[in-house]
Amino acid sequence: MIAQSFDYESPGTIAEAISLLQKYGDEAKILSGGHSLIPMMKLRFARPGYVIDINNIPGLSYIKEEDGYLKIGALTRESEIEHSGLLKSKYPIFGDVSKLIADPSVRNMGTIGGNLAHGDAANDHPAAMLALRAEIVATGEGDQQRVIPIDEFFQGFFATALKPDEILTEIRIPIPPEGSGGAYHKLERKVGDYATAGVAVQLMLDYGVCTYIGIGLTNVSALPLRASRSEEILLGKTLTDDLINESAQYASEDCSPSTDLRGSEEYKRAMVKELLIRMVHRAMDRAVAE
């Protein structure tokens, strides 16, 4: 399958990339890892007149802790996230997420920035970012940076809060305090499949009391979904089995999955409930082990 013809630009700086976005407007698409964009172009779902490849812009690939944040550069590959010593030791939720994204060769190309900027509720990072209450850094004209809270980032079907002349350049996560833990799992029919359902949980325990909770759901609604009622009932409480069950029940009611080849609506709701229970327990175990 061959994509429609396009012009290819490979800017060496963010400023240059932004000016190309301004010049070409709607006709331009940013190429990051390309493993969502290129299949869409080959199938001609996407027909950009201009492809702006940001892979030759230096300084967009890093994983570091700085000023109270975990900062991840937008061009950081999924395989780098999967094998990062810092993420393995302090943020195991990233390992849960990245090893379930596609397969090792796709992860050598796919980037965390692209995974988020694509704005697809079936992607896996969005749920984890909701759980971690990440902030998205968008860079625009004059290298101006704008910080977008994750709850305002996803706006519709493949639509995000990024302006047409902005590029997602960094993901920032407030460093969770001691006693925190997170976990993610998705059900998939085979390696490389989108989630039948996925649940991300990040929490903090203080002498057994839940003092932080974030819960995000994958591919069970039009947008990546925060399970708000599920969070509210857990916050400030000791996490008993009954309470966790009730929280999971809320998430299964509040999502809106559709019946498809991956399963019926009823099955997906049931899986949201079960996954939420399991992820809360795994996150609790990790919080205690920290």
Partner: peptide, 16 residues
């Protein structure tokens, strides 16, 4: 292998 990393060459443009 692209610079030593395995990639699926059906999902890259040659210019990359």
């Amino acid at each position: 292998l692209l610079n030593g990393k395995s990639v699926k060459s059906c999902t890259l443009f040659a210019v990359q």
